[in-house]
Design a protein around this nucleic acid. Structure first.
Lengths: 254, 254
DNA sequence: ACAAAAGTGTTACAACTACACCCATGG
DNA sequence: CCATGGGTGTAGTTGTAACACTTTTGT
């Protein structure tokens, strides 16, 4: 099956099985080399990047569709995943241009709505667990530093911006940052994450107090070694205590 | 034109002119008699209530559609209006039951998607400016106390709940409560509003300090008279200062 | 004159900010 | 032994919460 056959069959599948006119885009955030990253796909034979996205089956919930899309792209499930906005501008992109880029026969456009809304989700993932993999429509899938994004298709730049705003505002009120860390991590590593998300330096002593004050980290009898300085302790996110604290109202989910 | 003709023609119009499978519901909040209220419609010949809602024209933005729906229902425009969630459960309501209630011929259902998503907006309005008016599908339109809601159709109870949560969480971070007041109001009246939204009593002295500390209220040379006690001063929301404060970062829009 | 709500200031406590030195490790 | 980053406490400030009495007004 060549590319054209493949993409026509794909679009036929969507037109048959999915809710028309509504797509779903995920800003998948990871953290690596002291920088906050987002996962992007490069469209086949172009230098244009976009967010991983998909469509909603007629019989599944929108949240379920988001989990599915994320799973298809990263192989991960049960991640922190949150709907943050429905993007519904009257013109979100140039339909004909999109059609050309996808090398779709124009005749096919009868089966395709003139306009799509897109519901934005953001996900926080431990990048060590992810193997970014392109699909048949894309040549490349990789992490991009959020302060150095390439040219993005459609309104995906705006979607990333709004996702980031949401992430920033939530970081202050709930310890969602922990979803971005590997299983074991050090306090300074976590601080680097907060600094990357908030885009400002934080005071190590105050950060330590604040994070420890949440009582949701367990210090392990293990240290991160191999660096030319004092080895920091490793910690683990204590999900049990976290749930307990949520129940007590000690942690606020705004 | 009788009811059946009318509703068929209405649904034909929607099927022709609107985005299929996506509706829009507004939780319109007002404040009256020291209670927070929401505007509801009663379905023709039933005792079931629902939120005012509508559909999105194929060529208009979703935000614009929300403004339009709000205008059609309240006659008001340029209100505080904010999207808060896309409701996308796989089954949000019983389609056949809805069909029966609307007295639609079942045959018509070919033109109607099996399932609709709904994007929720909430609005804050000065109830003195609103004349609630039912449309041809509804017998009655009136304010309901949020702590004493009637039986609601579809998942509208959930939509109101999420709207309220959003409103509560935003009230703490931005002075949106002012959108619910008439042009001139007293500090104690505003306090009653905050108490109604947050559902807890507040201390008058602390409230006064906090609200005045925002520097966005102007005290008028006028008092509210006619009650058997000391007449309170009237204040006006100073939108100019408000914009200035927003620019300075003194007020935070999360 | 009485009932009802308005108006107002101080103190205690909690949360956040700023700030500097010694220690452990690998090279 | 040196460069690098980890680990830690205190004091000042800011914001929030608790608290009671006097004034005004209409009846």
């Amino acid at each position: 099956m060549d590319y054209t056959e493949q993409i026509i069959s794909f679009h036929n599948f969507i037109a048959d099985e999915c809710i028309p006119g509504v797509s779903l885009d995920c800003a998948i955030f990871g953290f690596h080399d002291t920088r906050l990253k987002v996962l992007l796909l490069r469209w086949k034979d172009t230098s244009e990047w976009c967010l991983p996205g998909g469509f909603i089956y007629k019989t599944e919930s929108v949240d379920r569709a988001a989990e599915r899309v994320l799973y298809e792209r990263t192989g991960l499930d049960k991640l922190f995943l949150q709907q943050f906005h429905l993007f519904g501008d009257a013109v979100r992109y140039d339909r004909e241009e999109m059609w050309r880029r996808q090398k779709m026969p124009m005749s096919f456009s009868e089966r395709w709505p003139e306009r799509t809304l897109s519901v934005g989700y953001y996900a926080l993932v431990d990048h060590t667990q992810v193997t970014p993999t392109p699909d048949f429509m894309t040549d490349e899938c990789r992490w991009w530093d959020i302060s150095d994004l390439p040219s993005l298709l459609y309104d995906h730049r705006q979607i990333v911006t709004v996702a980031l705003q949401t992430l920033r505002s939530q970081l202050n009120w709930q310890p969602i940052g922990l979803n971005l860390m590997a299983e074991k991590f050090t306090i300074p590593e976590l601080q680097r994450l907060y600094e990357a998300v908030l885009d400002k330096p934080l005071d190590a002593r105050n950060f330590h107090k604040k994070i420890m004050g949440l009582h949701i980290l367990t210090r392990l009898d293990e240290r991160r070694t191999g660096k030319a300085h004092k080895s920091p302790f490793l910690y683990r996110f204590d999900r049990e205590n976290y749930q307990k604290a949520l129940g007590n109202g000690n942690l606020s989910f705004v």
